[in-house]
Simulated scan of single mutants.
Amino acid sequence: MMVPAEIAASKQVSLITFKKDGTPVATPVWQVSEGNTLTTVSLADAWKVKRIRNNPRVEVTPCDIRGKVPPGAQTVSGTAVLLPPSETERARRLLAGRYISARIGAFFTRLFHIKRPPAVAIVVTF
């Protein structure tokens, strides 16, 4: 299944992960869509990453920067995979290609030799 056009065109998506008891937790994230996958990057110790390790089932819905889902927005189920650190930099470059804020942040990180906290790429397959 290809990434729905509504999700691919959305600047942010609500990434819904599930707690051990099945409670959904929505988090707005930047994303880049390619074919049948959606890629994002998160801090390695973020709760959404911990929830994905326990349960790779996720749902994705278009949203605004604050996580507000527009009425009638399509939700799609998928399976999330956490990529190894060696592939996280590629995901960061993908996001930088789409978001100017990511490019500016990467520029200042390199300019001032700021050490980034450990991150992990998340790839959702639909």
Rank of each mutant, 00 (worst) to 15 (best):
W30Q: 08
T109D: 03
P70S: 10
A102W: 10
H113S: 15
V49M: 03
V81S: 13
L15W: 02
V123K: 10
A44K: 11
P56Q: 03
F126T: 06
S77A: 15
L82N: 04
A8T: 07
I7A: 06
I114R: 13
L95W: 01
L43P: 06
N54F: 03
T88Y: 03
G72K: 06
L43M: 11
P117Y: 10
Q31S: 10
M2G: 10
P56F: 01
T61M: 11
I100G: 06
T23N: 06
Q74F: 10
L43D: 12
C63D: 10
E6K: 05
P118M: 09
K19D: 10
R110F: 08
T17W: 02
P70F: 10
S101N: 09
F126P: 02
I52V: 13
K11V: 04
K48M: 08
E87W: 02
E87D: 15
T37D: 08
F126E: 00
V76R: 11
S86I: 13
E87I: 04
S101W: 06
G78L: 05
G72D: 11
D45Y: 03
A121P: 04
R51L: 14
S42W: 01
Q74P: 10
A46N: 13
M2H: 11
D45S: 10
G67Y: 09
L94I: 04
R92E: 15
I52D: 02
V76Y: 04
V32Q: 07
E6Y: 01
P62S: 12
P28E: 10
K20A: 15
A26N: 09
G67L: 12
P71G: 12
Q74Y: 08
S33M: 06
K20C: 05
A46L: 03
R57V: 11
K48D: 07
A73F: 09
R98F: 11
Q12W: 15
M1V: 13
S77C: 08
S101Y: 05
T40A: 12
S42N: 06
V120A: 02
A102Q: 12
